[in-house]
Amino acid sequence: MEHFLAMGGYGRFVWPSYALALAVFAWNIVAARRSFTSARERALRTAAANRAAPTEPKT
C-alpha cells in the first residue's frame, strides 16, 4: 500500500493531479446544480406571481 501511494517517488505529483481532477468534477457538479436550482426557483417565483396577477398580459 505504501509502495502504491509513493508512486515510485512521484506521488507528490500524481496524487495532486487526481485530487485536482476530483475537485474540478466536484466544482462542476455543485456549480451546475446551484445554477439550475436558482434558475428554477426564480422561474417558479415568476410563475406564481403571474398566477396571482392574471390581469397582467401574458407574453
Binding site: F25, I29, A39, R42, L44, T46, A47
Partner: peptide, 29 residues
C-alpha cells in the same frame, strides 16, 4: 459523457433563465 451530463444540467438552467414568463413554466410549478 461527464461534459454531456454537466451540459444538460446547465442547459436546463439557461433555458429557464431565458424563458421567464412563458406559460409552460406554470406547469413546472
Amino acid at each position: 459523457l461527464g461534459y454531456a451530463a454537466l451540459a444538460c444540467v446547465r442547459l436546463r438552467a439557461e433555458v429557464l433563465g431565458r424563458e421567464r414568463n412563458a406559460s409552460w413554466l406554470q406547469e413546472l410549478g
